[in-house]
């Protein structure tokens, strides 16, 4: 190979190395602040949360993944906020939540009744039911009066604890 070509390739390689770093910098720059979306657009809070505003960032139709996730049977219950945040439990046929020792999920929370709520499996999915608690069970900010379906797009509030189910 001619020396000129060798020299050219040497500088081209170094230049490309720095172009790579420059690209990384550009990605970091645009990534720095993330993307602001209205809270209603994030997957977890349910439809009852606020008046749905049409947002340009995301179409109203739920994505393919979200629809598929909604169809599948949830397998785990996770505490997403509260004193025991991060705790994950496998969902069985039924799960009682409360403060007493005979509950499967014992919440360390002063606003939770002894036997507070129950999550049970049906053929179509999991349902949640309030067991006559003092402070109520809220599914997507709405107080439960009758058993309601609990899907991965819903947030359940018991006392100060937020729970979600995961597929």
């Amino acid at each position: 190979m001619s020396e000129l070509l060798v020299l050219g390739l040497k500088f081209a390689f170094l230049a490309l190395l720095w172009v790579f770093i420059w690209f990384v910098g550009a990605v970091i720059r645009s990534d720095l602040f993330g993307r602001r979306v209205p809270a209603t657009d994030t997957p977890a809070p349910g439809p009852a949360m606020a008046a749905p505003e049409p947002s340009p960032a995301r179409p109203q139709k739920p994505s393919w993944g979200a629809r598929r996730a909604a169809k599948r049977m949830p397998t785990a219950l996770r505490i997403s906020q509260g004193k025991q945040a991060g705790l994950t439990m496998t969902l069985g046929d039924q799960l009682k939540i409360g403060r007493s020792a005979d509950c499967q999920l014992i919440l360390d929370d002063d606003y939770v009744s002894t036997r507070h709520a129950r999550i049970y499996r049906t053929t179509t999915g999991y349902m949640v039911e309030d067991l006559g608690s003092t402070n109520g069970t809220y599914l997507n900010q709405e107080r439960l009066s009758a058993p309601a379906p609990f899907t991965p797009s819903d947030t359940l509030r018991i006392g100060r604890t937020l729970l979600i189910v995961e597929v």
Partner: peptide, 25 residues
């Protein structure tokens, strides 16, 4: 108020950078 910051996935950028890196190697 009712706004959350969602970091972007940047799948496209990541794939392009990956190809670039592999090509440089």
């Amino acid at each position: 108020m009712s706004e959350v910051v969602v970091p972007r996935k940047r799948t496209g950028a990541s794939a392009a950078m990956m190809l670039f890196a592999l090509a440089l190697g």
